[in-house]
Design a protein around this nucleic acid. Structure first.
Length: 228
DNA sequence: ACCCAGGGTCATA
DNA sequence: TATGACCATGGG
């Protein structure tokens, strides 16, 4: 694993100049960040939006609203996001967790490692979902590792790809420091690049930021030109 | 008709 | 600890 702060910052600046500010997370309220983080597990964001619209339309997009809902009703509402029975259970687990911890204010009091451990103790909240919540709902300086991140980093020759989640997260956090705003933009840009640039490009063989990818854009690519 | 997406859990060896 | 089955929809 070769993750230097310099290379990561260069990738960040490159993507930001190409794609512009992302202003993540795509949600209207804080609770929607939590809900979206669970619903997007193994699922395209498009489908999550459909599910979230249905929750809004049913007027249950609130802690009390969600908790008042029988599990099978909740599952039916979130059906478009897939895995709806599993995710209904997971959402209920998360709501119960928040209430038991005296709401978001009670959770704010925990430091980041403690809050991560607490989130991970909820059945259905794994490392990526926990870090989505830590970064985008609680604004903690955390680097989120997802499949887009692994693909991009692998194509750039930084990692093999099968490194443990926390190894990657820790290495990036160590390399670029504890800037919440940077982690926020960085993850958003990685996802944007993955789904809007790499995936739809028929000439892209994994990542159009990598110098050897035939699908990469114009010649002004600081990622590829920088490492000759 | 096939493929896969912004994961996570559980059973098995 | 490591691998595989499983969960399920909608869009390309």
């Amino acid at each position: 694993m070769r993750l230097g702060g310099e290379a990561i910052r260069r990738a960040f600046l490159d993507m930001r100049s190409r794609y512009g500010p992302q202003s993540w997370w795509p949600a209207e309220t804080r609770l929607e960040v939590l809900v979206g983080a669970v619903l997007t597990q193994g699922t395209r964001w498009r489908n999550v939006e459909l599910a979230i619209s249905r929750l809004r339309a049913a007027d249950v997009m609130s802690l009390d609203g969600l908790m008042a809902l029988p599990l099978d009703c909740l599952a039916e509402l979130i059906r478009p996001s897939g895995y709806f029975n599993v995710k209904a259970r997971r959402l209920a687990n998360l709501c119960k967790f928040i209430q038991q911890r005296n709401g978001e204010a009670g959770l704010e009091a925990l430091d980041t490692p403690a809050l991560r451990r607490a989130l991970l103790s909820v059945n259905g909240i794994g490392p990526e979902t926990a870090d989505d919540i830590l970064l985008y709902a609680f604004e903690r300086p955390v680097f989120v590792v997802d499949n887009y991140t692994r693909r991009l980093f692998r194509r750039l020759g930084w990692i093999v790809g099968d490194e443990p989640y926390d190894d990657l997260r820790g290495a990036v956090e160590l390399a670029v420091g504890g800037d919440t705003a940077l982690f926020n933009e960085l993850h958003a840009l990685v996802v944007f690049h993955g789904k809007h640039v790499c995936r739809p490009n028929p000439r892209c063989q994994g990542c159009c930021l990598a110098s050897r990818c035939p699908g990469r854009g114009d010649g002004r690519n600081s990622l590829s030109s920088g490492r000759t």
